[in-house]
Design a binder for these strands. Structure first.
Lengths: 248, 248
DNA sequence: CGCACACGTTGACTTGGATCAAAGGGGCTC
DNA sequence: GAGCCCCTTTGATCCAAGTCAACGTGTGCG
C-alpha cells in the first residue's frame, strides 16, 4: 500500500478535486450523470481554490474563464454602481455555481466574496462546453442550472417589486431554510453568514428595517433570533405572511 | 433551375421560416454562424406563430418544449403571485428569445403576452440542444444569450433595490432607446407598446408614480411625451439622473 | 484578558411613493 | 362619426420605510 504512492503518484490534491468521490454530486454539476460520465468530469474540474472570509473569488471587470462550484462555505455576489451604491444579487452555498454572469461578455459582471472560509472547484468554461458537446446529460443539466438562475432572479424581482419589508424577510428566511434542508441541515435552525446590511442590500431594505422585522417576528413568536443565530418556530405563520396584504 | 422546384418543392412557408434569409441574424440565434451552419438552423426553426395583441404565447405552468425568437412585434413576460399581485419581468423585442425560464423545470414559470400583433419563430429545445452539440459556435452563442439574461436580471434587481422612482424610469427609457437603436430605429423617438401600469409593474412602481415621473421629465425638458409617444430631448440629463442621489 | 470596533437594536422624526379620488383624452368598435 | 371604455393625468392625504441618533453586545485582536 505505501509503495503504491511511488508507482502511481496520486497527490492529495488530485484525489481531492475528483467529482467522483465528492458527496455533493446530487447538488452540483454531476447530477444525473453515470459513473463513467462523472469520471470524465473529474479531468475537467482541475483545481480547487480556498478562500478566507472576506476574500474575493472574482471581481467585476475581470476576465472570465471558468465557473466555480461551491465545495464548502458561503458566498455573496454583488453589483456596484459608480456612485457607490451596492446591491447584493445572491448568496451561494455548497453545490451552487458561481460565475455564470461572466459568460455573456467574457468579463465578470459582479463581485463574488466568501462570507466564511470556503473552498470552490474551478471549472474551466471552454472545457465544460467541450464536454457538454459529448455528454448530452451534462449539457442538459447545465442548461437547467442556468435556467434555474433566471427563474430565481425573477423571484427576487417579484420580491423587490411587490413585497413589503416583512414579506421580503419571511421569503428570505424560508428560502434559506429550504436550501439548508436540501443539504441535510436543520430546516428550523441555522446561522446567518451575512450581516443585517447584506440581507438588507439583497432585499432592497435598510439594515434598520431588517433588524426591526427580525424583532417583530420574534415578538410574534414566528422565530427566535439572537444575532446571527435563527430558529424558525412557526413556518406556516411565515408563509402566511407572504401571501397576504397587497403592496403598500 | 426552374424544375428544381418540382423535384424539391419549396413552399412559401418553408422559405418564410428560414433563418438564412431572415434579416435579424445579427440580433438573433444565428449570430456568428457560417452560412452552412445557418442552413442547419433552418431545419430546426420549423414553424412560425402569429399572435394578436393581448394573446398569450405561453402561460405559467404549461409544459415547456421550445423557446421562441421574436420575429416581429413586442412582448411582455410576467409572474403572478397567488394573491393576485403581478410583476412584469421583462419586455422583449425583435431578435430576443422567450421561454428560457422553462428549461429548468420543463414547465414555463411565467406568462408571455404579445403587446402588439407579433410573430415568433418556434425553436424546439431538444433540437437546439442537439444542434448545439454539433456546432460549437451555436452552443457558445446560446450560452452567452442565457448569461446575458442573467446579467440583465441583475440590472433590474439593482434598479428595484437601490434606485428611486425617477432614476428607474430614466434607466428604463435609456434601455429602450439603446435597444431600438440596435434595431435601426431612432434612439430618441419611439412609441411605448406598454401601459403606464405595465411600466410601473416592471419598475416596482404604481402607475400614478410613473405618470408623475413622465410629467416631471417633461417639465425639466428631458423628454417630450404624449401618451405612448416619447421623444428623448436630453440623453445626458437622463443619464446624470441615474448616477446621483442615494436611495431615500 | 481587556479593549476596540464592527455589528445590531431601538427610538424619534421625515419623506417618497402609495392610496384614494376625480376629471380629461384617444382610439377602437359598432 | 358617435359613444364608450380604457388609459392617463393631476391633486390631496397617508403610511411604510428611510434617516438620524444613541446606546447595547459580542468577538477577535493585540
Amino acid at each position: 500500500m505505501p509503495n503504491r504512492k511511488v508507482v502511481q503518484p496520486i497527490t492529495l490534491s488530485v484525489i481531492k478535486t475528483a467529482c467522483s468521490n465528492c458527496n455533493l454530486q446530487e447538488l452540483c454539476l454531476p447530477l444525473g450523470l453515470s459513473h463513467e460520465e462523472v469520471e470524465k468530469l473529474d479531468e475537467l474540474v482541475s483545481t480547487r481554490r480556498r478562500l478566507k472570509r472576506g476574500e474575493h473569488l472574482y471581481r467585476a471587470g475581470e476576465a472570465f474563464s471558468a465557473i466555480y462550484a461551491v465545495r464548502s462555505g458561503f458566498f455573496k455576489t454583488d453589483v456596484l454602481l459608480e456612485d457607490g451604491r451596492e446591491q447584493v444579487t445572491g448568496f451561494q452555498m455548497t453545490g451552487e455555481l458561481l460565475g455564470l454572469d461572466g459568460i455573456s461578455t467574457e468579463l465578470h459582471s459582479c463581485n463574488s466574496v466568501a462570507l466564511e472560509d470556503s473552498e470552490v472547484c474551478t471549472i474551466p468554461f471552454s472545457h465544460l462546453e467541450g464536454l457538454s458537446r459529448e455528454i448530452q446529460t451534462l449539457q442538459h443539466h447545465f442548461h437547467k442550472v442556468m435556467s434555474r438562475e433566471i427563474v430565481r432572479d425573477h423571484g427576487v424581482m417579484m420580491l423587490l417589486g411587490t413585497m413589503r419589508a416583512e414579506e421580503r424577510l419571511a421569503a428570505f428566511l424560508l428560502n434559506l431554510s429550504q436550501r439548508f434542508t436540501a443539504r441535510g441541515y436543520s430546516p428550523a435552525e441555522f446561522y446567518l453568514r451575512m450581516t443585517r446590511e447584506e440581507i438588507g442590500s439583497y432585499l432592497g431594505l435598510k439594515l434598520e428595517t431588517v433588524s426591526r422585522a427580525f424583532s417583530r417576528f420574534q415578538e410574534e413568536g414566528l422565530i427566535a433570533v439572537q444575532q446571527k443565530h435563527v430558529r424558525i418556530l412557526n413556518t406556516p405563520g411565515l408563509k402566511r405572511l407572504m401571501n397576504h396584504h397587497s403592496h403598500g
